[in-house]
Structures are given as C-alpha cells and as structure tokens.
Amino acid sequence: MNLFELNDNYKQIADRDDLDPTVLKDTLDAIQDDRKTKLDNLATWADRLKSEIDFMNDKKKSWEEEITYRKNKLKWIKKYITNVLDDAGIKKMATENHLLSARNFKASTVIDDTDKIPAEYRNYAKYEGMYDVEKSDIYKALKSGKKVPGAHLKPNRSTVIK
C-alpha cells in the first residue's frame, strides 16, 4: 500500500459513525503503518473533528439566539393582542382564521426585596447556612390575601390563540 491508500483507510474509518471505541481501537490497530504516519493521520482526524464541533457549537448558538428572539417576539405579539382585547372589553373574538380568548393565568410571585421576606418563607437548611426563599409558600400566602413584605403577585394575563 502506498501513503495515499493508507490515508484513504483512515478517511474510511473517520466517515463511519457505527464504530464504538473498542471496535475503533481494533480497526486502528489492524492498520499496518508506522507510528509516525498513524499518529499524523489521527491528529488530522482530531483536527477535523474539532473543526466540526466548533462549527456545530456556532450553529447551536445561532439557533438558540434565533429561538430566544422568536419567543420574545411571540410574547410581545400576544401581549399586544391581549391589550387590544382588554381595551375593547372583549373576552373572546372569532376572526376568519382564529379564536382569540383573553384570560388570566396563574399569577407570578415577584420577590422585590429578599431581605424583607419573613423567616417563615425561607428554607435555611437547603443551602447550609444560606437561605432560599420559598416562592410557592409566598404565592399561597399572597393568594389567600395575606401580606408578605418584600413580595407581590404579578398578574399574568394572556391570549389563547386557537
């Protein structure tokens, strides 16, 4: 075999996705080549894989940014629709293609100042000496009409689009 054919052998191995590490090791061990050539081809393969990983990570980041952008745009559009319906006093509206229903969803618990949250709404054991605010307990208290210093409920009104 000449050098070109050996490089082709490595290329064939690199193009296979079905090789587990044990089979890959056995396949590489079976290639009769001097150590320097074998390691050079493996280093080239490693460089190629690194480039592919970097490319995929860049694409992943780009897709994540695009998804975030579209989620934010969707929130804004639904908020706008809700405001238009609420301003007109309309609870439900049928359009040519959709049924729009403005409705209240579970309110969000907003912590304004963690230092003002009473001890009964904190979990000191969770973080060994530090505390964690128990938002679910605060939500239940606020929902039942109790006052909790440092926290309030934020209404969550949106439109369901069918």
Rank of each mutant, 00 (worst) to 15 (best):
L3C: 12
L6I: 13
L6M: 11
K11D: 03
I13A: 12
R16T: 10
D20H: 15
P21G: 13
K25Q: 12
T27P: 03
T27Q: 13
A30N: 14
I31K: 00
I31W: 01
D34G: 04
D34Q: 07
K36E: 09
K36G: 01
K38R: 04
N41L: 00
T44G: 07
R48C: 04
L49W: 11
L49D: 14
E52G: 11
M56C: 10
M56E: 13
K59Y: 03
S62E: 04
S62W: 10
W63H: 15
E66G: 00
Y69T: 02
R70P: 01
L74K: 11
K75P: 00
I77R: 08
K78H: 06
Y80L: 00
T82L: 02
D86I: 04
D87Y: 15
D87I: 14
G89Q: 07
S101N: 07
S101Y: 01
A102M: 05
A102C: 06
F105M: 05
F105D: 03
K106E: 01
A107N: 15
V110E: 08
V110P: 08
D112Q: 08
D112M: 06
T114D: 06
K116R: 07
I117P: 00
A119P: 04
A119W: 12
E120S: 09
E120K: 15
A125W: 14
Y127L: 14
E128T: 02
E128G: 03
Y131A: 06
E134Q: 13
S136V: 12
D137M: 03
I138E: 01
L142A: 05
P149L: 07
G150V: 11
P155A: 00
N156D: 14
R157P: 02
R157E: 05
S158P: 05
K162R: 15
